[in-house]
Amino acid sequence: MAHVVAPLDQPSNYKDSQARIDRLKQVDILSKSTTLYIGNLSFYTTEEQIYELFTKCASPEDGGGIKRIIMGLDRNTRTPCGFCFVEYYTHAEALACMRYISGSKLDERVIRCDLDLGYKEGRQFGRGKSGGQVRDEHRQDYDPGRGGWGAQAQRMEIERRREAEERYADVQEGPGAVATGGGDWKEAENNVVEVKLKRPRSLDDEGDNMRMGHRTRLDEDFDGERM
């Protein structure tokens, strides 16, 4: 059955960008694969939560089951960075996940599954510049389940903050420290306009509001359901 609709258990355009295997061989491996790549996990999701959901696609009576789970870790901090590999004993179990789990929620996030070529040493670590996943380098949104801003955005924010802090390092106190910008037109006189110095406005004041305004991109909202 697959003539009328596209089955969900076909390999997608997901791939291991560092795999050094030719395309045909990859297709062959995937057609027997027992390993899944799981993406868009929250950094806080545990292996036991993953086990609980994925064990529902296991077929122990068929000689299957969850063989192991390999949690994706940040290369530098050794903390979960939002992906993992789930390895089963049989290919059919991996396919079942593609059909029934991919696109559903775990720990209140929509996760995705993809057939994988199989775990190789080193693949448990993020490949992004900052140690996490590449996608978290470039992410533009605020995602509380994945450490807030994307790594580049975080770096940019740190940079902006540093610039902001340095920018006013030369600030002075006392009369005349703040320019007036010029007053109303007046007859040429010698009056000096005095302005009281207030606390310089911090960038943080605005930053927080901005964060609140952002919505989590991947976390779909299905609240419409009324029971």
Partner: peptide, 20 residues
Amino acid sequence: MSYGRGGRRRYREDYDDRRR
């Protein structure tokens, strides 16, 4: 929106356009 180099991967949960 651009993901830079990461843009070639798609992270949405809807795979319907896999059909080529």
